[in-house]
Simulated assay, not measured.
Amino acid sequence: MARNETKYMESVIVLSEELNFTLAAQKMHVSQPVISRNIAELEAKLGGRLFDRDRKKVQLNKAGRAYVEKARIALLYGDRAFKAARAAMQDADLVLHVGRSPYADPFLSSTLISVQQAKFPRMRIELSSQYSFDLAHEILAGGLDLGIATEPPESPLLTTAKIGEAPFYIAMSEEDVLARHASVTLEQLADRCWILFERRLHPTVYDNVMTTAEAKGIAPQRIQHVTAPEEAFPCVAEGSWIAFVVKAGALRIARDGVTVRPLVEDSLSLKTYLISRSDNQSKAVSALVRSFIRQLESTQVGRQRPVAVPA
Rank of each mutant, 00 (worst) to 15 (best):
P310Y: 11
R305A: 15
R255H: 15
G257F: 07
Q130S: 10
Q281C: 01
L270V: 14
V30W: 09
K119G: 00
H225C: 07
V245H: 09
D52R: 09
F168R: 03
V307N: 05
A311D: 05
L201N: 03
I195V: 12
Y273R: 06
G143F: 08
R261Y: 00
L112N: 01
E187I: 01
F51N: 11
V289I: 14
H181Q: 15
D54G: 04
L140K: 15
Q221A: 14
K216H: 10
S291I: 02
R294Q: 14
I13R: 05
G249V: 00
V209Q: 12
I13W: 02
V12P: 03
T22N: 14
V301P: 00
R255D: 08
A136R: 09
E69V: 04
R49Y: 06
Q300M: 08
Q116W: 07
R200F: 11
E187L: 12
Q304T: 12
A190D: 04
V34C: 04
T227A: 14
I218L: 07
A190E: 10
V184M: 11
A118S: 15
E198W: 00
A228K: 13
R55W: 02
T160Y: 03
R122S: 13
L251D: 12
L189Y: 03
P33R: 10
I73A: 08
P167F: 06
R199G: 02
V209A: 08
G164R: 07
E126I: 09
A182C: 07
A63Y: 10
L274K: 11
R255T: 04
E5F: 06
H181I: 06
M172P: 01
P106K: 11
I35P: 01
V301A: 14
N280V: 09
A71I: 08
A85C: 06
A87H: 08
V209I: 15
A66S: 09
R124M: 07
F244M: 10
S129V: 10
R261V: 08
F168N: 12
F292H: 08
K45Q: 13
P306S: 12
Y67P: 01
I125Y: 01
M1N: 08
A24V: 00
K216N: 10
F51Y: 05
G78Y: 02
A87E: 05
E165L: 08
A104Q: 02
L263V: 00
K216L: 14
A232G: 04
I39N: 10
A74C: 04
L186T: 09
L112Y: 02
D176S: 11
L108S: 07
L112G: 03
V209G: 01
E297R: 14
S11M: 02
V301Q: 13
A66T: 10
I139V: 15
Y77R: 14
S101E: 05
A237P: 03
L96G: 07
K83M: 15
F233Q: 09
E214V: 05
A84V: 05
I223T: 08
L50V: 04
P152R: 12
Q300L: 06
T212M: 10
N208W: 06
A215H: 13
A66M: 04
S240A: 13
V236I: 07
L157P: 03
G142S: 05
K119R: 12
